[in-house]
């Protein structure tokens, strides 16, 4: 069995340098690699490019890296909940590439799967398609989008084993699976790390071949962005 376990987040992020490009899983604050982000803040790496669907909130998630001005460029689909982000973007301090959400996922998957590019209908006729090749298939127009290239993927799973096999929970899965194996090195952090043989092979969401390093994180904060509840009177 090929084991992927590293002892802690410091070992997991070995080799991270200024100017690198990272993919980070998560949708909003759901399923984000909390431990890797905290360590990136501690390391103080600068001029980084982050590929992540959102940019966190002001004081959590990728917002922590924005506060320290560590991010040179953000590639996201939606950045609406972060005032500091908006300020840095409008002032020109931060470079931002907005990409349709399905295209963003597919550009990660293409990198994971060995496709250099793909055609998608998303963004045709909009500024997203500017400067890109467009082509007609069966009477409909499509935009050519290229796979990302990235140095590290940081993903978060619910359970994992020492072989790097991963299982996600709920909607915390989101972008994490398509980022596994889409960078030179993929680091998975999990809430529960178990010995090989304990996970049912039928229930693995991401096979360990896509993972280079795995570690167990403790005390996940899992902050809720929009707590919405119902009462009997308000179904």
């Amino acid at each position: 069995m090929i084991l992927k376990t590293v002892s802690d987040v410091q070992q997991a992020l070995k080799g991270v340098e200024n100017g690198m490009t990272f993919m980070l899983g998560g949708f909003g604050l759901c399923g984000i690699p909390e431990k890797a982000i905290a360590e990136l803040v501690t390391l103080g790496v600068k001029n980084i490019t982050c590929i992540s669907n959102n940019a966190g909130v002001d004081n959590f998630g990728l917002g922590l890296l924005l506060q320290k001005h560590q991010i040179k460029k953000m590639i996201s689909s939606y950045v609406g909940e972060n005032a500091e982000f908006e300020r840095q973007m409008l002032s020109g301090e931060l470079e931002v590439e907005l990409t349709p959400q399905g295209t963003l996922a597919e550009k990660c998957r293409a990198a994971q799967s060995g496709f250099p590019a793909f055609y998608t209908p998303a963004g045709y006729g909009t500024e997203v398609a500017e400067g890109k090749e467009v082509r007609e298939f069966n009477g409909k127009m499509y935009v050519l989008e290229k796979a990302y290239t990235s140095d590290f993927s940081f993903v978060k799973a619910w359970k994992g084993d020492e072989a790097g096999n991963l299982i996600f929970k709920g909607t915390a899965r989101n972008f994490n699976p398509c980022m596994c194996g889409a960078s030179k090195i993929t680091v998975a952090e999990v809430e529960e790390l178990v010995p090989v043989g304990e996970l049912d092979p039928n229930e693995i969401h991401v096979p360990g071949i896509f993972i280079q390093r795995i570690f167990e994180g403790s005390k996940y904060e899992k902050r809720i962005e929009q707590l919405t509840v119902r009462t009997d009177h308000n179904p």
């Binding site: 949708f27 909003g28 604050l29 759901c30 399923g31 909940e81 619910w158 929970k169 709920g170 909607t171 915390a172 899992k222 902050r223 809720i224 962005e225 929009q226 707590l227 919405t228 509840v229 119902r230 009462t231 179904p235």
Partner: peptide, 21 residues
């Protein structure tokens, strides 16, 4: 489904508006 009852929310189960569901 509907929004959860208070105390039954799960940070890992949200919709695209980031609301607990």
């Amino acid at each position: 489904g509907a929004f959860p009852f208070e105390g039954e929310e799960d940070a890992d189960i949200i919709n695209a508006g980031k609301q607990t569901i």
